[in-house]
Design a protein around this nucleic acid. Structure first.
Lengths: 129, 129
DNA sequence: TTCTAAAGTGTCGCATAATGTAACTATATG
DNA sequence: CATATAGTTACATTATGCGACACTTTAGAA
């Protein structure tokens, strides 16, 4: 077990926090409350700490002194935020909510090792299309 | 979690200091308050002491008798300044502020092991483009 | 040296944002 | 229905960012 599966409709409070669904909570707690949220264009991706570390390893092959490589690294890191689950909740920073077009409602989508956060209308669009 | 992530809008005081965001502060404190700030053309890069040392190692593989290598080394070292975080703040020397076009506002961009400092307009330009 | 201006440093308080707690509502389970 | 669990809202508490100000140090001129 312990992988993120399924789709959940959740709501954000006025500060941008949401309750982690009970089934996700168990999976998250296995790797500690630390996690990284990263904007990937139309949606957000939540990485548990370990999973993020694996990603960083892949990125470490890029050369920080090469302009193009550095730009790619920047795109990735600049839109990431480390946060943690506290009292069963995760706070999404304002800038990430804006990038993802999140207001009051959101859709969580399990992706096995990670899960995604969509705005409901974007989700419906890509579901329908 | 000890890596620099995310984007922060910060402001410089009249002396050119800025408050290090709380999340960066923890990461910085792990390697001591000592750090090196280095100009990399349109922006500045802040290296914690340890990370700077690793970089020096890499650069030491360059050949000091090769003109091009030597030029790269010179570019790198000549525009670096060592400074430190004091009372949670970092003072950016005037010459570096001028190189980066910094006035009152700035954008901090996490790059995992280091972070960058941009002037807001340059940052918007490279984001949009 | 002494004076003066400029640059660097520490601290405090306020406004705002982040966080924890608890109460309340909804949904599921038997 | 009664109970338990999950989800939501609201409010109290705490932390953070930032400006203001005072003090210290440095550098140069007289």
């Amino acid at each position: 077990m312990s992988s993120f599966l399924g789709t959940y409709n959740i709501s954000l409070d006025e500060k941008g926090r949401f309750n982690v669904p009970a089934k996700f909570r168990g999976t998250l707690e296995q790797s500690g409350p630390q996690l990284v949220v990263c904007a990937m264009e139309p949606f957000l991706v939540v990485f548990p700490q370990k999973e993020w570390a694996l990603n960083e390893e892949k990125l470490s092959s890029l050369n920080a002194f090469d302009i193009e490589d550095r730009t790619r690294l920047r795109e990735f890191y600049s839109r990431a935020t480390d946060c943690e689950m506290k009292s069963g909740k995760i706070l999404l920073p304002l800038n990430l909510r804006e990038i993802a077009g999140l207001k009051k409602e959101a859709v969580l989508v399990g992706m096995s090792k990670t899960f995604e956060i969509w705005s409901p209308d974007r989700w419906d669009k890509q579901e329908g299309g």
